[in-house]
């Protein structure tokens, strides 16, 4: 059941409200990523063919696959960490800087657990350099460690800190996949909508502004910050970017383009709020455009 207020909020900014709301009542496809640290894509594809499991590739990432099979988790490849079951949208942030990662010396994944993005970043770095994978919640560190072990990641330092208190280091790339109201994953989690409240949105927005500011301060000159959430709420997305632009004049948002993946620009007006025109360079990902979860991401250079 989609709350009426939710319909009012997003029906006003999505291109096709009927398609959007219809999509929210369906499950997203099951997807995985071939882990380049342990396996070769063509070998995995061949083995899945032998299992009789149909795979579909996606045009925007050669290591991402969709399968209709519910038994991906019962394959030898899953046991070996040759594949990693991961939502398609979760694979996106590292791809925004995939040209930088092979040569990056220091990378910070500020909100790393459970490690899906961290292991993808490690694969794109070829296990070289160093990734500081941080999560403030110790109970989530265990899952982070398990997933990095399983995927054979060597180049991480796992830290357990409030990012706002992180020491004064400088990173080539910083990822802030901020804690959010998670509206974007409601296709596979009914409770998101059943417990949905604008109160959650406003509560997250304040923390996100602190995290993005700290994250940006940790970027080395010439480096880049990737900010992402899995929510539609402008208060947690464009408003947070607008806050950063207002408080850090050296922050510049770059256009995002992923060949074969449809995105919508960030919005510059929400209620009585006007945002800086540059927030339109961020990318909104509506679920009905690519049959994924909902997502938001921005690339900010220093």
């Amino acid at each position: 059941m989609i709350p009426e207020r939710f319909r009012e909020r997003y029906g006003a900014i999505v291109d096709d409200p009927a398609a959007f709301f219809a999509c929210l009542t369906t499950f997203p496809p099951k997807s995985f990523r071939v882990n380049g640290l342990k396996a070769r894509r063509e070998n995995v594809v061949e083995r899945f063919g032998q299992y009789g499991m149909g795979l579909r590739s996606v045009p925007w990432y050669e290591d991402a696959f969709i399968s209709d099979s519910l038994e991906i988790g019962s394959t030898l490849e899953h046991f070996l960490g040759h594949i990693y079951i991961q939502e398609l949208t979760s694979m996106l942030p590292p791809l925004l800087v995939r040209d930088r990662l092979p040569n990056a010396r220091l990378v910070l994944d500020g909100c790393a657990a459970p490690g899906s993005k961290t292991s993808e970043i490690a694969a794109l770095m070829g296990n070289r350099g160093a990734i500081y994978a941080n999560d403030p919640d110790y109970s989530r560190i265990r899952a982070l460690k398990f997933n990095l072990e399983k995927t054979g990641v060597l180049n991480t330092v796992i830290t357990n800190m409030d990012l706002r208190n992180y020491p004064n280091m400088r990173f080539n790339v910083v990822f802030i996949d901020a804690p959010c109201s998670s509206e974007g994953i409601c296709r596979k989690n009914d409770s998101i909508l059943s417990s949905w409240s604008e109160h959650f949105i406003h509560r997250h927005s304040k923390l996100q502004k602190q995290l993005i500011t700290k994250g940006f301060d940790l970027v080395a000159p010439g480096g880049v910050l990737v900010y992402s959430t899995c929510t539609y709420a402008p208060e947690e997305n464009e408003e947070v970017l607008d806050w950063l632009l207002s408080n850090r004049e050296e922050a510049k948002i770059e256009y995002i383009s992923l060949s074969g993946f449809k995105t919508s620009p960030g919005i510059t007006c929400w209620g009585d709020r006007e945002f800086a025109p540059a927030v339109a360079r961020a990318a909104r990902i509506w679920p009905h455009h690519n049959d994924t979860d909902g997502f938001f991401m921005a690339k900010v250079v220093k």
């Binding site: 350099g129 160093a130 990734i131 560190i141 060597l154 180049n155 991480t156 796992i158 357990n160 280091m169």
Partner: peptide
């Protein structure tokens, strides 16, 4: 693991 600085960090 990587050769990396760990000063002032709470390492897990």
């Amino acid at each position: 693991g990587p050769r990396a600085s760990m000063n002032n960090l709470r390492i897990a």
